[in-house]
Amino acid sequence: MTQMIITGLLCGALLGFVMQRGRFCLTGGFRDMYLSKDNRMFYALLVAIAVQSVGVYTLIELGIIEYNAGTLPLFAIIIGSFIFGIGIVFAGGCATGTWYRAGEGLIGSWIALAGYILMSTMMKSGVFAPINAKFQQPQLQTNSMADTLGINVWILIAILVAIVGFIVYKEVTKPKVFIPTLKAKRTGLAHILFEKRWHPFVTALLVGLIAMIAWPLSAATGRVFGLGITTPSANILQYLTTGDSSLLNWGVFLVLGILVGSFIAAKASHEFRFRMPDVKTGLNSFAGGNLMGFGASLAGGCSIGNGLVMTAMMTWQGWIGLAFMILGTWTAVYFVFIRGRQKKKNTVISTKTSPTTA
C-alpha cells in the first residue's frame, strides 16, 4: 500500500508539473488544428506517443511487463470518443487538462471535474452502467493492429518513429519567429523550471517518458496498465461513497498526484490564482464534464487512456478513438466558435440596421 501511494503520487506529480509548465493541453491543440491550422500540439502528442511506444515495448521485450490488447468494442469507441471530443470543448480542457488546471486554481475546471467524476461513476457502477455495458457488447476479437495486419509490432513502431522524426525535423528547421519575452527574474535551474517558456516537443518528450515509467510502477502494485484518468477518477467517488478500500489503486494516487504537481508548478511560477467563471461558463463546464465522463467511459479511455496510451500500444482502440476525439472537438468548435460568432455578428448587424421605434 505504501509503495502504491508513493509511486502513484510521485508519477502523477511529475505529470502534473510537466503538463502545467509545458501547457500540454490537447483540447487547445485539437481546437487550433481546426481554427488556426496550428498542428504543433498534435505533433507534440505524436512525439509523446512514439517515445512511450518504444519504451513500453522495450520493457515488454525484456519481460519486465506483459500486455494483451484484448478485444475491440468498435461502436462504443466511435460514439464515446466523439462525445468526449465535444465535451472537452465545453469543459475547457480534456480529462488530464481539467485535473492540472484545477491545480492552478481555475474554479471552472473544478466544476468540470465534478461533472466528469460524477458521470464516470454513474457509467461504471451507477444508474447508467447497463447502458455502458450494452454499448460494449458488440466486440471485434482483435484489438492489436499488428495481429490484424499479420506483422511484427516493431514495424508499426518504426513507421511511427520515422513519421514523427520527419515532422520534428521539419518543425525545428523552420525559420524562427521572434517572440518577445519578459526579462528573466531568475537564473539557472529555477529559470528553466519556473520561468522559461517550454518547447512543446520537450514537454512531449517528458510526458512520453513519464507515460513509459508509469507501466512498471503501476504493474508492481498489481495494476497492469499505464497512465489512466477516467476509471481512477470514478474510483475516488466510489471509495468516498462506499468506503471500499480496494478501490484505492495506483491510478487513484496518480490523478491526485497530478493535482499536487500542477499546484506546485503553478505556485512556484506565480501562475496560481483562484479564478471564478461566470454563470454561463460554469454551466458549460459542468455539462462538458458530464459529456467527458460519459464519452470516456463508453470509449474505454480519454485523451490520455486512448489518445496517448492505447495509441502507443498500437491498438485500433487508441488510433480510432483519437481520430473521433478530434472529429468531436472540431464539430463542437464549428458550432460553438464559428457558427456562434456568425450568429452573433448577424444579430449585431440586424440590430444596427433595424428601424428604431418612438
Rank of each mutant, 00 (worst) to 15 (best):
Q3R: 13
Q3Y: 15
T7D: 05
T7S: 15
T7E: 05
G8S: 11
L10Y: 00
C11S: 14
G12C: 13
G16R: 10
F17W: 14
V18T: 15
M19D: 12
Q20F: 05
Q20L: 08
F24M: 07
T27Q: 05
G29F: 02
F30I: 02
M33F: 05
Y34H: 05
L35I: 14
K37V: 02
N39M: 08
F42A: 06
Y43N: 04
A50C: 02
S53F: 14
V54L: 13
G55K: 08
Y57V: 07
Y57S: 07
L62W: 14
I64R: 12
I65F: 11
Y67P: 10
A69G: 07
A69S: 15
F75C: 11
A76R: 13
G80I: 12
F82K: 04
I83S: 04
F90Y: 09
C94P: 14
Y100V: 15
R101F: 10
E104T: 15
A112E: 13
G115H: 13
I117R: 06
M122D: 07
M122C: 03
K124R: 15
V127K: 00
F128R: 05
P130V: 07
P130G: 07
I131R: 10
I131F: 15
F135M: 15
Q137V: 13
T142K: 04
S144N: 06
S144C: 03
L156E: 01
A158Y: 00
I159F: 06
A162R: 03
I167H: 01
V168H: 08
V172M: 09
T173V: 07
K174C: 09
K174Q: 06
P175D: 08
F178V: 08
F178C: 00
L182S: 10
K183P: 01
A184M: 00
A184T: 01
R186S: 06
G188Q: 09
G188F: 02
L189G: 01
F194K: 04
E195D: 04
K196Q: 09
W198K: 10
F201L: 12
V202N: 13
G208V: 05
L209S: 10
A211S: 07
A211Y: 05
W215E: 12
L217M: 06
R223D: 13
L227Y: 08
I229D: 02
I236P: 01
L237N: 02
L240Q: 01
V252W: 06
F253A: 06
V255K: 04
L256P: 05
G261K: 08
F263K: 12
I264S: 11
A265R: 07
A268Y: 09
H270Q: 12
F274A: 11
M276C: 10
D278N: 13
K280W: 10
T281F: 10
L283E: 06
S285K: 03
S285F: 00
G288L: 04
N290W: 00
F294E: 00
S297F: 03
M314V: 08
W319H: 06
I320M: 12
L322A: 15
L322G: 02
A323G: 12
M325T: 11
M325H: 11
M325Y: 02
G328F: 00
T329G: 09
A332S: 15
V336C: 14
F337H: 12
R341I: 03
K343P: 05
T357K: 10
A358C: 11
